Amino acid sequence: MSANKKKLVAVALCVVTAALAGFVSGVGLSILGASRLASVSGGAGAFLAMGMFGLSIIGLFEFKDEDTRTPPARTQQGAPTP
């Protein structure tokens, strides 16, 4: 898998996890009796905090290609070719 695809999968997983955490915290605040505005604000804050933290952690890693193919062997100048 290429490095760009690896990073795309990591970022997508981070965004989905942050959205789930934001939704759960918003619903949790609503259940605890907070107003609608406070619930939405809490959920949005959790989403932004988790998202930015996750993306900053992903940014620290260097994604590499898994290309294990060996380059073609060079023939020496003057050597017979098969």
Results as ranks from 00 to 15, higher is better:
residue 1 M to F: 10
residue 19 A to K: 07
residue 18 A to T: 13
residue 57 I to K: 06
residue 13 L to K: 03
residue 72 P to R: 04
residue 16 V to P: 14
residue 10 A to K: 02
residue 31 I to F: 08
residue 14 C to F: 04
residue 78 G to L: 08
residue 53 F to A: 05
residue 80 P to S: 07
residue 65 D to I: 06
residue 44 A to T: 07
residue 63 F to D: 00
residue 28 G to Y: 05
residue 48 L to C: 14
residue 75 T to N: 10
residue 45 G to F: 05
residue 71 P to M: 05
residue 72 P to W: 03
residue 31 I to E: 14
residue 8 L to T: 14
residue 64 K to Q: 01
residue 20 L to R: 07
residue 1 M to L: 12
residue 17 T to W: 02
residue 71 P to L: 15
residue 15 V to P: 03
residue 13 L to M: 05
residue 39 S to K: 00
residue 78 G to K: 07
residue 8 L to A: 15
residue 28 G to W: 02
residue 36 R to S: 11
residue 76 Q to P: 00
residue 65 D to K: 15
residue 69 R to D: 04
residue 54 G to I: 08
residue 30 S to A: 14
residue 12 A to N: 10
residue 56 S to I: 08
residue 53 F to L: 05
residue 32 L to F: 07
residue 47 F to A: 04
residue 2 S to R: 15
residue 8 L to S: 09
residue 1 M to A: 13
residue 57 I to L: 02
residue 7 K to D: 09
residue 38 A to E: 02
residue 36 R to M: 15
residue 79 A to N: 08
residue 10 A to Q: 01
residue 16 V to I: 12
residue 62 E to D: 12
residue 2 S to Y: 03
residue 48 L to E: 14
residue 45 G to V: 00
residue 45 G to N: 02
residue 17 T to Q: 00
residue 34 A to D: 09
residue 63 F to N: 07
residue 11 V to A: 08
residue 11 V to R: 12
residue 63 F to P: 01
residue 69 R to S: 05
residue 1 M to D: 10
residue 64 K to N: 14
residue 34 A to S: 11
